[in-house]
């Protein structure tokens, strides 16, 4: 019992210590978002100041902020759902079947994530232009699929390998089709993995600056491009509003994390089934 307590104490100690490190810049953004313009650039930096909500009010009253948010939401939802719809069955096929060229296909998917966007930007823009996808939500969504597909396929592959296959075999004997097995047997028990890759994929899309910049012009302006355009001037950064907008734009992510948290904390009681 004594070991158990020390263990707990050490865990809390390191969690608190790391939390300070991980929260520090966000805390600073939080403070900046409540300052007026002079306070944001005061020297020495101010920790105590008269807070103002004007930054938040201005951001929320800005129609373009909402337009950019809608662009981001549309692009993220399209790319994440499409990537999951093709990625999870793909991972399933890799783990449950043996077929020729399997490893080559898996490595090819992995390699789509290896080349940095900057290196292939020019020919990629040309390709999107060829397919008439420039400055469209579908075009940016397709580019975002490139960002997340490898993660979905390979992480799901690792998760699915750990899942018991007895249930699937039972379902197969009962005469269920493959797609039905994926839908009603595999998906439910792989939920922690699916939720995790969904959240990560969403983040990859939500935070991407590069493809939104090079593939979008007028009709698609996702949040990262809008935030930097609106709040970084030629002469200076509008820290108050940038911080406020930056924090506001994490709102959809917070919702996703809350959903994810429920799934994660509950964890799995799969052991009983497998046993």
């Amino acid at each position: 019992m004594k070991y158990f307590k020390i263990n707990l104490l050490v865990s809390y100690f390191f969690l608190i210590l790391s939390s300070v490190f991980f929260i520090l810049p966000i805390l600073w953004m939080f403070l900046q978002s409540f300052k007026n313009a002079k306070d944001t650039i005061a020297i020495p930096p101010k920790i105590f100041f008269t807070p103002t909500l004007s930054n938040y009010v201005k951001v929320l009253k800005n129609d373009y902020f909402w337009e950019a948010t809608i662009d981001s939401v549309v692009v993220s939802l399209m790319s994440v759902s499409a990537a999951l719809a093709i990625g999870i069955p793909f991972a399933y096929a890799l783990t449950r079947f043996n077929f020729k060229g399997k490893n080559e296909i898996a490595h090819f998917i992995l390699s789509t994530k290896m080349l940095p966007g900057i290196v292939i930007a020019i020919p990629l823009v040309q390709t999107f232009n060829y397919f008439n996808l420039l400055d469209t939500h579908i075009g940016v969504s397709i580019a975002h699929i490139l960002l997340m597909l490898a993660v979905i396929v390979w992480v799901m592959r690792a998760f699915l390998q750990n899942l018991p296959i007895d249930l699937e075999e039972a379902a197969l004997i009962d005469g269920a089709g493959r797609l039905r097995i994926i839908w009603s047997v595999v998906l439910p028990i792989a939920r922690p993995g699916i939720v995790t890759v969904t959240a990560l994929s969403f983040l990859f899309s939500w935070n991407d600056l590069f493809f939104g910049l090079t593939l979008g012009s007028f009709d698609v302006v996702p949040l990262p491009i809008y935030l930097t355009t609106e709040y970084i001037g030629y002469l200076a950064v509008n820290w108050g509003e940038l911080s406020a907008a930056g924090l506001l734009s994490t709102f959809p992510i917070i919702i996703i994390v809350i959903l994810l948290r429920d799934n994660l904390i509950r964890g799995l009681s799969l052991g009983a089934i497998k046993g």
Binding site: S19, L24, L209, I232, G246, S249, T250, I254
Partner: peptide, 25 residues
């Protein structure tokens, strides 16, 4: 849950915005 949210919060901030914040810090 509170520790989980804090520890993964850096992922939620757009890299451009967080990098600018680091720069001033």
């Amino acid at each position: 849950s509170i520790f989980l949210v804090i520890l993964i919060s850096p992922l939620a901030i757009m890299p451009v915005v967080s990098a600018l914040t680091w720069r001033t810090m």
